[in-house]
């Protein structure tokens, strides 16, 4: 059984390591400060006793006030998982740092989120629309589309 690590415990540890990185930590997930997301994610990936080597998926949800981007990480070595969330309050030009450097699997998914939700990922090597064609107006998965 994959153990879902408690966000509260891990949050404490991360807050010590990177002050200001954790906005909120509840048992289900960790709400990460977007500006420190690459550091936190890199820490989670590289530290031997956590070893989150597998990025299950990235997705995004539009809550009108903010966009929430959800990262689910799994360690195939210890068989535990954690959910990271990052929020973007800017509707006009939402930007998040990319994690493609850490997990290549994020490549297509960040492009897809950029395509459908309109969140730009800074540091992505090839941030182009994935599913829709270039020049498509708008980002269909946003709640205010249509």
């Amino acid at each position: 059984m994959t153990i879902a690590l408690s966000g509260t415990e891990l949050g404490k540890r991360l807050a010590e390591k990177f002050p200001g990185s954790i906005v909120e930590s509840i048992p289900d997930c960790l709400l990460v400060n977007p500006s420190l997301l690459p550091e936190v994610a890199g820490f989670l990936k590289d530290i031997p006793d956590l070893d989150f080597n597998y990025l299950n998926y990235i997705t995004s949800v539009d809550y009108y006030e903010y966009f929430e981007v959800i990262y689910r990480l799994t360690s195939t070595k210890y068989n535990h998982s954690i959910v990271l969330k990052a929020r973007c309050y800017d509707r006009e030009n939402p930007v998040l740092p990319s994690v493609t450097e850490l997990w290549q699997g994020a490549n297509f998914q960040e492009r897809e989120i950029y395509d459908l939700m309109g969140i730009r990922f800074e540091g992505h090597p090839n941030l182009k629309r994935l599913l829709l064609w270039d020049g498509f107006a708008g980002h269909p998965l946003r709640k205010d589309y249509l």
Binding site: N56, Y57, T59, V61, Q104, G105, F108, L141
Partner: peptide, 16 residues
């Protein structure tokens, strides 16, 4: 549903 995200196996297997 407010939002459904599908983790697309086929797409992610194409990454490499």
């Amino acid at each position: 549903p407010y939002r459904v995200h599908i983790r697309p196996t086929s797409l992610l297997n194409l990454t490499a």
